[in-house]
């Protein structure tokens, strides 16, 4: 699958990416490499730039400097030197290689569960309706919603909607899946069914970058955990190291302590 002039082994290579919203620096020279099959979890306080970083990876957000490559190919810009923005057609084609699941589900309300999954398959991947339908049914089965193929989003619970959201993303066979606090908008009793789906995708070898506040899940499912603070990566490593209560990183220790106090 190596398709690039760049022979880095990383599937996703983020190098010194910075971004400001007006005068506010939101990302400060962030660098992170994710290998194929890795599950990287980003944790950190609200406002630390986690969402913005994920949105830069599929160019829902532009960035001011640095470079993001997927499979060696520069995202968003023709190259990191001239920083000439890619054409909309190019951007669309690149985004199709990255799946994204949103905190607020963002299903298309006028389409059924199957219809939500089929839209990208037919319009972007050029599959026939019948083909797209059978792929949609396959993935709905995988997320336990085979019986809801013809239900509209409004007829589904939050947990079911989010599972459709995951199916919509993975049905496109993306190289990498981005998940942004996908259980934060759910009632506690619905969180488990969604995390179970994510876990099974991880076991299949799907490369994932996820932002979550589910620490127990992060500990069990992640290859590495990244701690973000103030727009930068403050700590990164295996779950056991990063989540260790006796860490010497002051901010991380404060974050974890505050987190434990509010969640347990």
């Amino acid at each position: 699958m190596a398709t690039s002039s760049n022979n880095s082994p990383a599937l996703l290579a983020i190098a010194e990416v910075s971004k400001s919203f007006g005068p506010v620096a939101v990302l400060r020279s962030v660098s992170l490499q994710v290998a194929k099959g890795e599950v990287v979890t980003i944790i950190g306080p609200s406002g630390s730039g986690k969402t913005t970083l994920l949105r830069c990876v599929n160019f829902l957000e532009s960035y001011d400097s640095g470079s993001i490559r997927i499979d060696g190919k520069e995202v968003g810009y023709r190259d990191s030197e001239t920083r000439q923005r890619r054409s909309e057609r190019d951007l669309a084609a690149m985004r199709a290689e990255t799946g994204m699941v949103f905190q607020s589900f963002n299903l298309f309300p006028h389409l059924t569960a199957a219809g939500n999954i089929m839209l990208g398959l037919t319009k972007v991947r050029g599959k026939s309706n019948a083909e797209a339908r059978s792929i949609a049914e396959h993935w709905l089965g995988r997320v336990g919603l085979a019986h809801k193929a013809d239900s509209l989003p409004a007829e589904l619970s939050g947990g079911q909607q989010q599972r459709v959201g995951i199916a919509r993303a993975v049905a496109m066979e993306p190289k990498i899946l981005l998940l942004d606090e996908i259980t934060s908008a759910l009632d506690p009793e619905l969180v488990g069914e969604v995390l179970a789906v994510v876990k099974s995708l991880a076991e299949d070898g799907m490369t994932m970058v996820m932002v979550t506040h589910e620490m127990a899940f992060a500990r069990d499912a992640s290859s590495r955990i990244v701690f973000m603070a103030d727009g930068g990566i403050s700590a990164v490593g295996p779950p056991k190291e990063v989540l260790a209560a006796e860490t010497t990183n002051e901010r991380l220790r404060t974050f974890l302590a505050r987190f434990r106090a509010s969640h347990f």
């Binding site: 599929n58 669309a92 985004r95 990255t98 799946g99 963002n106 309300p109 839209l119």
Partner: peptide, 12 residues
């Protein structure tokens, strides 16, 4: 969010 979702699946 709906427009973002449309972008994310690669729609032009």
């Amino acid at each position: 969010g709906q427009l973002d979702a449309g972008k994310a699946i690669g729609l032009t």
